[in-house]
Design a binder for these strands. Structure first.
Length: 338
DNA sequence: TTAGGGTTAG
């Protein structure tokens, strides 16, 4: 009986769609394969849709396979599918193939979307391929894809981790010049990054600059990074000033804020302040944790009072279940040195 | 459907 090929094609498509809907990708693959071997023409759109499905289901090898089959037929993917393909390949770190897809897109004059670029940039920095990352950034700008706050955050974070602070700050300024408002994550990347590298004053200047300029609102984490940075650099006054500043902006100190300050007091033999802080915590909604108690334990030991430390441990820490390997190591070391 | 992870101890 005569049946036009269009009907066959429709049947194939329907079968594939129902298998995909049911999550039976292997069956869908079989039908697609059958379709390509049959007499009906398989169009670019069929490859596009099916490769899209394979990418969504993380079947990247198969997606690769069909991509190489479709190219000689003169078919190409849609810009959307190319972008999803690149994003997917970032999970499997297939750099060579990503580059091939980028070049293919160039030839077709289509540009990956912002997600594909950001995901790729992030991968390159995670793999310490800073030079390639900056090249990709240049390529992105050249092709007219405007970087956004996520792009800049990835770059700033990556550069700080590589200790390239000047370059990171340049990108921060570049972002502001473009009128992009740094959000909490962007401020976090810069604050944490610069403080880790000992550039606390610079971190403070840049981050507080955008907050007091009304450009950004940040979370406790960002303030904590700065507070901790100043405590480590011996700038307790600045640290305390940030604590009152954050409270004024409606951002309450949390457990980490208290612990950072406790840590400072205990290292600097400011025993009374430490006890006061601990009591304040015990009375507040922010109850101390094992970290907090370990700070006090350390303070007793540093003051050459392992006996008092032991008392503190037995009466205050053990009943609350707040003793860990750090507590025991601290006290054992103290008794050995006593 | 699609992304940025990062603050405190011995």
């Amino acid at each position: 009986m005569y049946q036009p090929l269009g009907v066959h094609r429709l049947i194939y498509r329907t079968r594939i769609a129902s298998y995909v809907k049911a999550g039976l990708i292997d069956y869908a693959v079989k039908v697609f394969e059958e379709m390509t071997l049959s007499e009906c023409r398989v169009f670019g759109i069929d490859y596009n849709r099916f490769i899209g499905v394979l990418i969504r289901h993380s079947r990247l090898d198969l997606a690769h396979h069909y991509y190489s089959k479709m190219a000689p037929l003169g078919f190409s993917l849609s810009s959307f599918t190319y972008s999803r393909f690149i994003s997917g390949l970032c999970q499997t770190k297939e750099f060579m193939f990503i580059e091939k897809l980028l070049n293919d897109m160039d030839r077709l004059h289509c540009v990956p979307d912002i997600w594909a670029f950001n995901i790729y940039l992030n991968l390159l920095f995670r793999e310490n391929r800073e030079e390639s990352a900056l090249e990709v950034f240049g390529r992105m700008v050249e092709r007219g894809r405007e970087p956004d706050v996520v792009t800049f955050t990835i770059i700033i974070d990556g550069l700080c981790k590589m200790k390239k602070f000047d370059a990171a700050v340049q990108f921060w300024r570049n972002m502001l010049d473009k009128g992009i408002r740094p959000d909490n994550k962007a401020c976090g990347a810069l604050a944490v990054g610069l403080c880790d590298g000992g550039q606390v004053d610079l971190a403070y200047e840049l981050v507080i600059g955008v907050i007091s300029g009304g450009l950004s609102e940040v979370s406790t984490l960002v303030y904590n990074a700065l507070i901790s940075g100043f405590c480590r650099a011996g700038g307790i006054d600045k640290a305390l000033a940030i604590v009152s500043f954050m409270s004024r902006t409606g951002c309450k100190p949390d457990l980490v804020t208290y612990n950072v300050l406790l840590n400072y007091c205990c290292n600097e033999f400011m025993f009374e302040e430490a006890v006061k802080l601990l009591k304040k915590m015990e009375c507040s909604a922010t109850e101390p944790d094992v970290y907090s108690y370990n700070q006090l334990l350390k303070a007793f030991c540093k003051a050459n009072h392992p006996d008092k430390a032991y008392q503190f441990m037995v009466t205050k820490m053990v009943p609350k279940g707040f003793c860990d390997v750090v507590s025991y190591n601290t006290i054992i070391k103290a008794f050995l040195q006593y």
